[in-house]
């Protein structure tokens, strides 16, 4: 019964979808803000990667919100799973091979994450991806060593300081008499590491923050007792 209703509902939704998207042109150029961004990004922001420029500069407010969403998810997960940590139980340890390799790979993965967020304005990637990679690298250690612990104190500090950096960078723009999150640094030459004004600063802050947050999420979930 439930299935029948669901299928009926989906059939209606699907019908509308198909009707709308059959007329949607695929692969054609569009007028609109996208075109403006493509033509003016390098001039206005100095970033080679237009997507990064949009994410951090033109629509930087979104990114601030996005960081907040992740922050809230980490906080909320902490609140939901509060008081459920600990209790000993027997677990299968990882084999020597996995342990040794994790040790070797852990710094490399973290370095890769750092590379991704430092080069956010030049190559694909940026703060979120870099942070996710760092968190995954820490997870590698969690998986190999049950006793591996991250310091919650340090996580909190990184998280807060990175978040404050982001907000402060925004407020500096406001304090200088322009608008929130406005660039106040020289743009530099495109495709240099030190270019694009505040974009790298924001992405580094985001990278640290997301890395710390996702590590916190994974830690919270892993250390929860069943």
């Amino acid at each position: 019964m439930r299935k029948a209703i669901a299928i009926l509902l989906l059939a209606i939704v699907g019908y509308y979808f198909i009707n709308v998207f059959i007329h949607m042109p695929f692969g054609e150029k569009r007028e609109g803000v996208g075109k403006y961004y493509l033509e003016n990004t390098v001039k206005e922001t100095g970033a080679a990667n237009v997507v990064t420029a949009i994410v951090v500069s033109y629509r930087g407010f979104d990114t601030l919100g996005e960081v907040t969403v992740l922050f809230l998810a980490a906080t909320g997960l902490g609140a939901i799973l509060f008081g459920k940590r600990g209790e000993k139980r027997r677990l299968q340890g990882a084999s020597v091979i996995v342990k040794t390799t994790s040790m070797m790979l852990y710094p490399m993965v973290v370095l890769l994450g750092a590379y991704v967020f430092v080069h956010g304005h030049l190559t694909p990637g940026g703060g979120f991806q870099g942070g996710a990679i760092i968190a995954t690298g820490v997870l590698l250690m969690f998986m190999s060593y049950r006793h591996f612990n991250v310091s919650h104190n340090a996580l909190t500090w990184i998280e807060s300081l990175a978040g404050l950096t982001f907000a402060t960078v925004g407020l500096i723009g406001l304090a200088l008499g322009t608008t929130f999150l406005q660039n106040f640094l020289p743009l530099g030459t495109p495709n240099d590491l030190v270019s694009a004004g505040i974009i790298p600063i924001i992405y580094i802050a985001v990278g640290f923050k997301v890395g710390a947050e996702l590590t916190g999420v994974l830690d919270n979930m892993l250390k929860t007792i069943r």
């Binding site: 370095l111 590379y115 430092v118 590491l193």
Partner: peptide
């Protein structure tokens, strides 16, 4: 060395950033 492999560039800014990050991670 791994950083150099990632960036494949010898610009000063890249080298300094790489050194700093390697120091922190190391």
């Amino acid at each position: 060395l791994i950083w150099l492999g990632f960036t494949t560039s010898l610009a000063t800014a890249e080298l300094i950033t790489g050194a700093v990050l390697s120091l922190i991670i190391a």
